[in-house]
Design a protein around this nucleic acid. Structure first.
Length: 277
DNA sequence: CTAGGTGCCTGATTGC
DNA sequence: TGCAATCAGGCACCTA
């Protein structure tokens, strides 16, 4: 599933490929993946020029200009959303639902098995409102001081890490990995972490996110993430708990990775290395 | 403020 | 064997 490192990988490539290109045409096979009117989406986007692609949290933000007016398209990949850059002559992709002709024989395809993802046209003002709802993100505006402040809540630490209004960009994979790295049990209430634990967790989050970025994302066995050239990321080999239920802890502690549900999400940890206090 | 439930989807898994 | 029920999962949205 695309989290901060995966979305950033996609963003960087999209920015390189799209900047300066003009939308020649759009085909929408699944209108439900467009927020708002898909007819308006087609009308407004056709003829517009990409000026850049940004990212905040897990959101992709396409900057466009048309007839002297600037606007944006925000996109969320959710679980299985994917942008692929293809030649128009290429075979259709699986779950290809929206196709954007960018000229030069190339097209941008939005594919999504589960159809949770979306695209939406937004004005500068509406975009600002959307982005204001997101908390600071790792490696950027999240400081250890802000992190400690945010932990003053009586809530399972893992649930807090996944709350995009508190910290943004962290998803299930990196949350599990960071908690293992910091040796903190996922159900621990955030306000019970010591200063040292909070500091360790902050460092652990930076570490696992950096690893994800360096390796162009985590592609697990379900293939949920591919970059715009349909290439897998290489970070999966560094995962230490995610989807390793029943396998030996890589700290060689002798225990096995256990899976539980926390806040309705699959949660992986080592009962010995991450003891419940 | 937080918790809890539902809905969006479909492939994989489980149940009978 | 085959089909049906169940379920995961990010996030919005609603109710308590």
């Amino acid at each position: 599933m695309p989290e901060l490192p995966e979305v950033e990988t996609v963003r960087a490539d999209l920015n390189k490929e799209l900047a300066g290109q003009t939308v020649k045409g759009i085909k929408v096979d699944k209108p439900n993946l467009i927020k708002g009117s898909h007819l308006d989406f087609i009308k407004e986007l056709t003829g517009a020029k990409f000026t850049g692609v940004r990212r905040q949290a897990k959101l992709l933000i396409f900057d466009l200009t048309k007839d002297g007016r600037d606007f944006h398209v925000v996109a969320h990949l959710k679980m299985t959303g994917r942008f692929l850059l293809r030649e128009q002559s290429d075979q259709p992709d699986n779950y290809q639902h929206i196709t954007i002709d960018i000229g030069g024989g190339k097209e941008l395809r939005f594919c999504d098995l589960r159809q949770f993802g979306y695209l939406a046209i937004t004005s500068k003002e509406d975009l600002a409102k959307i982005l204001a709802g997101y908390g600071p993100e790792p490696l950027k505006d999240l400081t250890v001081e802000k992190f400690e402040e945010a932990l003053k809540r009586k809530l399972a630490i893992k649930k807090l890490l996944l709350d995009q209004a508190v910290f943004s960009g962290i998803g299930n994979i990196y949350a599990n990995e960071a908690l293992f790295e910091a040796k903190i049990q996922p159900e621990r209430l955030a306000n019970t972490l010591s200063i040292k634990e909070a500091s360790d967790l902050f460092q652990a989050i930076s570490k696992v996110i950096t690893s994800g970025l360096t390796n162009r994302g985590t592609t697990t066995k379900d293939d949920s993430f591919k970059d715009i050239y349909n290439r897998a990321g290489s970070n999966a080999k560094y995962l230490r708990v995610y989807e390793r239920t029943g396998q030996p802890c890589l700290n060689n502690c002798g225990d096995k990775i256990k899976k539980i549900m926390v806040g309705g999400r699959g949660t992986y940890f080592c009962p010995s290395c991450q003891p419940q206090l």
